[in-house]
Each structure stands twice: as C-alpha cells, then as structure tokens.
C-alpha cells in the first residue's frame, strides 16, 4: 500500500481526506498547519479525528504562519474551531514533541522513494521541509496538493485559499522539481455532496455520523458564504491519483504562482494554451511542464469517497 503523509489544516474536507487516505492507503503520519483555523485548532482537530477514527499514527504540529505573507484563516467557512458542527472526542494525546518538518523528514527517510506527501492546506510546512533538507526531493515519490484554481477564486477573484495563504511557499514547492500533482478549485467544486449524499452516512456508526454532522455544517456554511448548493470535497481529491487515477484526468503542464501584490496575487497561472512548434517571440511558451494539473473529475468520484467513509466506519465496529 502506498505510504502517505497528510499535511493538513482540518478543516471539514481535510477530515474526509484523512478517512479516505486511511481506508485506501498506508496513512503513516499527519502534520498540521494553520489555515482553515489557527494551528492550535487544526492540531487539536487532527488529534480528535485520529481518536474518533482509531488512527494510532504520529501527529506533529507545524507552521503557525506563512513564510512571508500576512496570516489569514478560513474561519468563515469552517467555524470557530475549524471543525464546527459535530461533537468530537477530546484528544487522547498531545502532538509529538517535534516540528511537522521533522516528522515529514523522518517519515520520508523511513519510506525512501515511496512516500507520497499529500498537502491539503497552506504549503508552508512542505516548503520549509524542502528548504531544510534538499535530499527530501530524492526521498519522496511525489507531492500531491489540493490548491489553486484555473478561472475561479474563493478568497480573491482568482486565488484559491490554500495557495493564497502562502503563495511564496507554494512557488517553492512547485519549483522543487518533484513529481507534483495539483487539483484546484475549478475541479473540486465539481466534487460536492448534497443533503442526500450526507444523509447516506447517517445509517453508520459514530465516525460516519460525526462526518455527516460535519458535512451538514460545511454545506450550510458554503451555501451562506459562497452561495453554492453542494459541499465540495476539495481535499480528498488530492489523494485520487494514488487511489484510483481514473477518477480525475490530469494534464502535465506548466503551473506557476503569481507573487506580485496586484489583483492576481496567489493565483495559479497554468499553461492551457495550445502552442505550435514555431517560436513566436512575444507569444513565449511557458517554463517546462512541472505539474500534473487536474482537469476533469469523474461523476464516480463522490460515490467512491462516500463508500470509503462507510466501509472504514463499518470496519471499525
């Protein structure tokens, strides 16, 4: 089974990603980052979810603020705790007494050449890890990210939250030269659950029912804040290439992050033009392809994620 480390900021959809990964992959560690709420909240949430799901895996807290950018959090959508809407168990342990970067490096060393680093929050920890230990690039099989967008923004007109949180970190990660998968808001917005989908979890045990409560809150939040009728399962999408690659089409292309402080700061700028072979002077081709960029989700993906939750929940009994 593919070993995965999840670097996340739970977060309602992070919670789903955690279970999706635990069900289909070898989820071997969790690191946390600020984002959907402060680091204290996201770390506590990760530990609560681990207890709820019976995951006895290492958890370490990471960055509490971006590398350069001023901090923001996504409280409007995820609530005061970052995981509002359900009764979660108190954590039964503290995070490890090490920084997320150390846990990333330790886990990558243990699974050299095999570990997938899945990042579903701001990319601060991942960028720090790559800067601190240049060999990390050789140790990882790849990085898969939920972040960015082509065309639609959720923080600004064109920027997506995870990338916008720390654009400089995102640029460091995309330029690292690792095999990289990126699924953006334009795709994850089409991977959403409605009330009936959520209710289909209510026949299960405590974990499934708790996730249903969380998703109900998330659905109502997104409706209120963004006016959309389904709760997007953004973060689990990042795991799809290693669970069932037929569920999302990816295209290898050039993606860079706009860092200038204008209207487009934090935008993922993807090369989607078709260019011929003639050098065009001013119509310069972009830098070489560096990212597998998600383009098209399968309608089978939402049922697949829901099934994973139900099966994981059933296996816990």
């Amino acid at each position: 089974m593919t070993p995965v480390l999840l670097d996340c900021d739970p977060g309602h959809d992070d919670a789903v990603a955690m279970i999706y990964a635990a069900h289909h992959l070898n989820l071997c560690a969790i690191t946390t980052v600020y984002g959907n709420q402060t680091l204290d909240h996201t770390t506590r949430n990760a530990l609560s979810l681990c207890r709820l799901a019976g995951l006895n895996i290492p958890v370490a807290a990471g960055a509490s603020a971006p590398l350069v950018a001023p901090p923001i959090t996504g409280g409007a959508v995820h609530g005061k705790t970052g995981l509002d809407g359900a009764e979660l168990p108190e954590p039964d342990r503290a995070p490890l007494d090490m920084h997320a970067v150390e846990l990333i490096l330790r886990t990558a060393r243990e699974h050299k050449g095999e570990l997938i680093l899945a990042a579903t929050g701001a990319l601060t920890n991942v960028a720090l890890a790559l800067q601190v230990e240049p060999k990390l690039k050789e140790w990882l099989r790849g990085i898969t990210i939920m972040g960015g967008s082509t065309g639609i923004g959720n923080v600004t007109e064109v920027a997506e939250f995870n990338i916008y949180c720390d654009p400089e970190a995102a640029e460091i990660v995309l330029r690292a030269g690792l095999p990289t998968w990126l699924v953006g808001l334009d795709v994850t917005r089409r991977v959403g659950v409605n009330k009936a989908d959520i209710d289909s979890l209510r026949g299960g045990g405590k974990l499934a029912r708790t996730l249903a409560d969380l998703l109900d809150f998330f659905l109502a939040s997104l409706k209120r804040v963004q006016g959309i009728d389904t709760a997007s399962l953004h973060d689990p999408c990042a795991l799809v290439p290693f669970i069932d690659p037929t569920m999302i089409d990816y295209r290898h292309t050039s993606v860079r992050i706009e860092l200038a402080p204008g209207l487009t700061r934090g935008m993922t700028v993807a090369e989607l033009r078709r260019l011929g072979n003639v050098p065009l002077g001013h119509m310069r081709p972009s830098a070489p392809a560096n990212v597998h960029l998600a383009r098209e989700p399968s309608p089978r993906l939402v049922p697949h994620i829901l099934a994973a939750i139900r099966e994981f929940d059933a296996a816990m009994k």
């Binding site: 200038a260 487009t264 935008m267």
Partner: peptide, 12 residues
Amino acid sequence: ETIGALTMGRTV
C-alpha cells in the same frame, strides 16, 4: 491586472 509578473494584462 497591471502589475502581475505572470498575469500582466489579465482580465480579472
């Protein structure tokens, strides 16, 4: 956009 390094002249 009038100051983007990658996005100069984009209609936002």
